[in-house]
Computed example of a mutant assay.
Amino acid sequence: MSQTPPPLISPACRDALQSWLTGQAALNDASENTIAAYNSDVIDFLGFMTNHHGGQQGLAAISRISVSDMRAWMARSRADGLSARSLARKLSAVKTFYRWLAEREGFEPTAVLSTRAPKFTKKLPRPLAQDAARAVLDTVELQSERPWVAARDLAVITLLYGCGLRISEALGLKGQDAPLPPVLRIIGKGDKERIMPVLPAARDAVDKYLRLCPHPMKPEDPLFRGIRGGALNPRIIQGVMARTRAQLGLPSTATPHALRHSFATHLLEAGGDLRAIQELLGHASLSTTQTYTAVDTAHLMEVYQRTHPKA
């Protein structure tokens, strides 16, 4: 699940870190990638404190970390070329660990928790324009000479754009989910459940794929299959999308996940309610969904500057 911390971290800190990571995986359903990132971020922090203070830092020592210690770690990280965005992520992991450790060990973590993350410009989602999204749907089937594979790829892409699914959610569907109902129950990140209306176009695309698919479909089988019948690897869909965008002359940001962004942005442009879009996307926080209002505003300003006679 996680790497073993290097020897320069005290055994007590190592054990505490492993306990915290185990809890994150079990209680918060953190993914393996998230656990690996947490592990690396906290190890980097604790390793710096060991070198900074000239010796192994046990639990008592790290409970006394000061504001100046935090500043020194952040300054070193930036000097090593770490971006503000990456440092903010590392700091978030360290704070989460420290909050847990302070509750367990009974110390005051204010110096760590009050440390401000460096400011950075958040990257806005890069959705496709509506005509580009339609062109993708029209072109995806041309990427394979096997009719059933072409139908499969179109069905997946249609679910990403038409229902705003993550690629893992689309590829996580089972044979028992077909034929797709008008309303689909999706289990997303953190086991968060949401109800997703399924457009007729998406249901039709999946039905066509099922009619052509040469592999038997049991209820427990993955709905979308690879050439040999196993579960479809997301890299296959990423490759299909790469060939499609090359054929259409779209930018490298036109990825499978960009179709989910496009779903949300196009709903917002059409007057969709932000809270409703939040529910459809399965976002835990409205602030995550509000990113799309910035995209919509940026698009509006672009149109204004391009078309207004006084611009």
Score class of each variant (00 low, 15 high):
Leu21Trp: 10
Phe107Thr: 09
Asp15Ala: 13
Val149Phe: 08
Gly106Arg: 11
Leu59Tyr: 11
Gly249Pro: 02
Arg260Ile: 04
Tyr209Ile: 07
Gly272Cys: 03
Pro6Leu: 12
Pro11Trp: 02
Pro11Ser: 13
Leu210Thr: 02
Arg71Ile: 11
Ala150Ile: 05
Leu137Ile: 01
Ala60Cys: 11
Ser63Gly: 15
Asp80Met: 10
Gly55Leu: 10
Ser31Gly: 06
Ser92Glu: 11
Gly175Met: 06
Leu154Ala: 09
Thr139Asn: 03
Val183Glu: 10
Ser144Ile: 02
Trp100Glu: 12
Gly162Ser: 07
Phe107Ser: 12
Thr293Ile: 07
Glu141Phe: 02
Leu180Pro: 14
Leu171Asn: 06
Arg306Ser: 14
Arg185Trp: 10
Asn39Gly: 12
Gly81Asn: 06
Arg166Tyr: 12
Thr291Glu: 13
Leu232Cys: 07
Leu8Thr: 12
Ile277Leu: 02
Asp296Thr: 14
Ala276Cys: 00
Glu279Pro: 00
Gly162Lys: 09
Ser86Phe: 13
Tyr292His: 03
Ala311Gly: 05
Gln56Trp: 03
Gly271Cys: 07
Asp69Met: 15
Thr255Arg: 03
Phe263Asp: 03
Ser285Arg: 12
Leu286Thr: 03
Leu27Phe: 04
Phe48Leu: 10
Glu269Cys: 02
Arg64Phe: 00
Ile236Leu: 09
Ile167Met: 05
Arg99His: 13
Ser10Phe: 00
Leu248Cys: 10
Tyr304Val: 03
Arg211Trp: 06
Thr34Arg: 08
Arg134Phe: 02
Arg126Ala: 14
Pro7Thr: 03
Arg211Asp: 10
Thr115Glu: 13
Leu171Thr: 08
Ile277Asn: 00
Leu274Val: 07
Ala26Lys: 09
Gly164Met: 12
Ile186Asn: 09
Ala270Pro: 00
Ala202Cys: 09
Gly106Met: 10
Val156Trp: 05
Arg245Thr: 07
Ala155Val: 01
Gly23Arg: 11
Ala117Asp: 04
Trp73Leu: 14
